[in-house]
């Protein structure tokens, strides 16, 4: 069964792939290592997990104003996520998505954290503002 949720495209584009869901907010500075594309915050549930090539679904950004710069660096290192789905948008995550230059959705009609599980196949259509969640593959 597939589910489609309406949202708003934050960065235009279209991508599909495997979801990586974080139920905790993510830090840029002190939270991720851009060189490897992994979460490095010790107390984070995704500690040590790599988000490169995944559709990163998370509730929002926290921490330093360096957030966008760290995610921009993942693009420069080639370790960026494939797309982003952001629960609550802020200046940090909006600018971060823009400079990571990956299709991004937010302001969805349903909380994406309730709908998407890690491993689900998801389609991020940021041009039309649609998130489609399929079965795990």
């Amino acid at each position: 069964m597939t589910v489609t949720i309406k949202g708003r495209g934050i960065v235009p584009g279209h991508a599909e792939g495997e979801a990586l869901v974080s139920h905790e907010t993510i830090s840029g500075w002190g939270g991720i290592d851009p060189a490897t594309g992994t979460v490095i915050e010790r107390r984070h549930p995704l500690f040590g997990v790599c988000f490169t090539g995944k559709v990163l679904v998370f509730p929002g950004a926290k921490g330093s104003s360096g957030w966008s710069g760290f995610f921009q660096s993942t693009r420069l290192y080639g370790t960026a996520p494939l797309a982003m789905v952001i629960g609550k948008l802020s200046t940090k995550s909006a600018l971060g998505a823009v400079v990571t230059r990956v299709p991004t959705l937010s302001e969805l009609d349903a909380d994406p954290l309730d709908v998407v599980r890690t491993g689900d196949w998801v389609v991020v259509d940021a041009d039309r503002g649609l998130l489609t969640v399929g079965e795990q593959r």
Partner: peptide
């Protein structure tokens, strides 16, 4: 600095980033 500028000084700024 952002929270000081907004709250103590009454200036208006978001928490911006390196590119903005």
């Amino acid at each position: 600095a952002v929270v000081y500028a907004n709250s103590v000084l009454g200036a208006r700024t978001n928490c911006e980033g390196g590119a903005s």
